[in-house]
Amino acid sequence: MSVSIFLKNKVRFNHTVISSGRSFRSLSAEAGLSSSTIYPILNSDKRISPRVAKKICDTLKLDFDELFEIKEDER
């Protein structure tokens, strides 16, 4: 069994980023990520690496559980 990290709520994430005064491009720059990493997270159910999730949380000053959820994959 493996685990995957997903965005918990896309609408809430969008609101959080925008209300913080950031664009998604500026969020990616501040977090040290490429915008090609951020946009697929917003547009699909893309799995997120622990490193990327931590960088986003640190930049937005939010706890992991506020933005992301861990799902177990039964393989």
Rank of each mutant, 00 (worst) to 15 (best):
G21N: 10
G21Y: 09
R22Q: 14
R22L: 15
R22P: 02
R22F: 15
S23I: 07
F24S: 03
F24Q: 14
R25C: 03
R25W: 10
S26M: 12
S26I: 11
S26P: 06
S26Q: 15
L27W: 05
L27Y: 03
L27R: 02
L27S: 11
S28N: 01
S28L: 03
A29P: 00
A29I: 13
A31E: 08
A31Q: 12
A31I: 06
G32V: 06
G32F: 06
G32S: 09
G32R: 08
L33P: 08
L33M: 11
L33H: 11
S34G: 14
S34I: 04
S35L: 05
S35F: 05
S35A: 07
S36Y: 05
S36D: 07
T37D: 06
T37E: 11
I38M: 04
I38A: 00
I38T: 00
Y39I: 00
Y39K: 00
P40D: 01
P40I: 01
I41Q: 01
I41N: 00
L42F: 03
L42S: 05
L42E: 02
N43D: 13
N43A: 12
N43W: 04
S44H: 06
D45F: 05
D45H: 13
K46E: 08
I48Q: 02
S49Q: 12
S49V: 10
P50S: 12
P50T: 02
P50C: 05
R51T: 15
R51D: 15
V52W: 04
V52L: 04
A53I: 03
K54R: 14
K54W: 06
K54C: 08
